[in-house]
Design a protein around this nucleic acid. Structure first.
Length: 291
DNA sequence: CACTTGACCTGTCCGC
DNA sequence: TGCGGACAGGTCAAGT
C-alpha cells in the first residue's frame, strides 16, 4: 500500500492521540512481523510520531524507536477503549470468525496488537506479511540500511528542482518513472504517485532520463510535489487495503488522473488511457498528453 | 556496474 | 462451480 501520502496520513492521525501515552503490552501474532525486544519500550512515554519516506516511526522517551514499514498491505489502526470492548463482544458470529471488515479488530490479517495506557489498541494488520515493525536504538536509526540509502524528502522545503536534477544525473539511462520510484533518487514516491507525477509533468513514463530538458525536470518537480500533496489532501489512496489511523479509507483515487483509470478517457484530452508494464509495475498514461 | 526478474505472502478477480 | 493464472500502494537478492 502506502506511499508517502498514506504514511503521512497515518502519522497525522496517530500523533493526535498517542503522544504522552505508554504501551502497556505487545501481543505478537505473527513473529516474522516483529523484530527486536518488545519489553524495551513497555511503560515508556511516547514522545513523538514521525515519518521518513514510507517508514512510520514512534519515538519513546528512552533511547528506542519503533519503526513500521507497511509494504503493500500494511495497516496501522488505533481503536479507542469503548470501541475495543464493542468489537470483542461481537467478534464471533455463529461460532465462526466474521470476515475481514473495518471495525472488526483484531481480524485475520492482524499481526501485532499494542495496548496503550488508556486501554486503546493499536493494531498492525498486514494481509501479505511483507511489512514489519522493528524496535531499534535511536542512535542506530540512521544506519538502518533502508533509511541510510534514502534520497531527499520531496515535500521538505530544502527539496528543489536543482536537487531533483542532480539526483536524476545518477539514472540517465533509466526510464523516468522507474527513476522516480527509486528511493535513493527521491524518497516516498510509489507506483500510484509516480504515474500521477508523470501525467502532471506531461512526460511519457518510459522516456529515458537523459532525454529530459530542464523544463521537463521542472515540470516533473512540480508534478511530484503536486501529486503527493493532493494525496495527503484527500487522505491517501485506497486501492484495496489502505486505511488511516482511524480505519477510514483514502479518497485520492477518486481524483487521480491516470492510476487505475486504464480504458477510461483522459480527463484533459479524452484519449483512452493505456496500461503497460514498466519494470514489472503497472503503468497508466495518456498517449496524447504525455510525450 | 546497471538494469531486470524473482521472491517474499495472501487474496481476489477473470477467463476457460 | 472449479481451477489456473495474473495481478496488487514495496523492497531485497540474485541473475543477466
Amino acid at each position: 500500500m502506502p506511499e508517502l501520502p498514506e504514511v503521512e496520513t497515518i502519522k497525522r492521525g496517530l500523533e493526535k492521540k498517542i503522544i504522552g501515552q505508554k504501551i502497556t503490552s505487545v501481543e505478537i501474532l505473527n513473529p516474522k512481523s516483529f523484530q527486536g525486544i518488545e519489553k524495551l519500550i513497555l511503560n515508556t512515554k511516547i514522545k513523538k510520531v514521525f515519518r521518513r519516506a514510507k517508514v512510520l516511526g514512534i519515538e519513546f522517551e528512552n533511547e528506542y524507536d519503533l519503526i513500521f514499514h507497511l509494504k503493500m498491505s500494511g495497516q496501522v489502526i488505533l481503536v479507542g477503549d469503548s470501541k475495543v470492548k464493542e468489537n470483542n463482544s461481537d467478534r464471533f458470529v455463529g461460532g465462526h470468525p466474521t470476515k475481514d471488515m473495518l471495525g472488526q479488530l483484531p481480524n485475520r490479517s492482524t499481526r501485532i496488537v499494542f495496548t496503550l495506557s488508556d486501554n486503546s489498541k493499536l493494531y498492525f494488520n498486514d494481509q501479505r506479511k511483507f511489512g514489519w515493525v522493528k524496535l531499534i536504538e535511536k542512535s542506530k536509526l540512521q544506519e538502518n540500511s533502508l533509511i541510510k540509502s534514502l534520497g531527499p524528502e520531496p515535500l521538505e522545503k530544502e527539496f528543489t528542482k536543482e536537487i531533483l536534477k542532480n539526483q536524476l544525473q545518477k539514472k540517465k539511462n533509466t526510464a523516468v518513472k522507474v527513476a522516480i520510484l527509486d528511493q535513493t533518487v527521491i524518497s516516498g514516491v510509489g507506483n500510484i504517485y509516480a504515474c500521477e507525477a508523470c501525467f502532471l509533468a506531461k512526460i511519457e513514463p518510459n522516456r529515458k532520463v537523459s532525454s529530459l530538458t530542464d523544463k521537463d525536470i521542472e515540470n516533473l518537480f512540480y508534478g511530484i510535489i503536486r501529486s503527493l500533496e493532493d494525496g495527503i489532501k484527500y487522505g491517501g489512496s485506497t486501492k484495496t487495503h489502505f486505511v488511516n489511523a482511524d480505519g477510514k479509507k483514502g479518497l485520492f483515487l477518486d481524483y487521480a488522473n491516470v492510476y487505475s483509470r486504464e480504458g477510461q478517457p483522459c480527463k484533459v484530452c479524452k484519449t483512452i488511457l493505456i496500461k503497460t508494464k514498466l519494470n514489472g509495475r503497472g503503468t497508466v498514461f495518456c498517449t496524447t498528453c504525455q510525450i
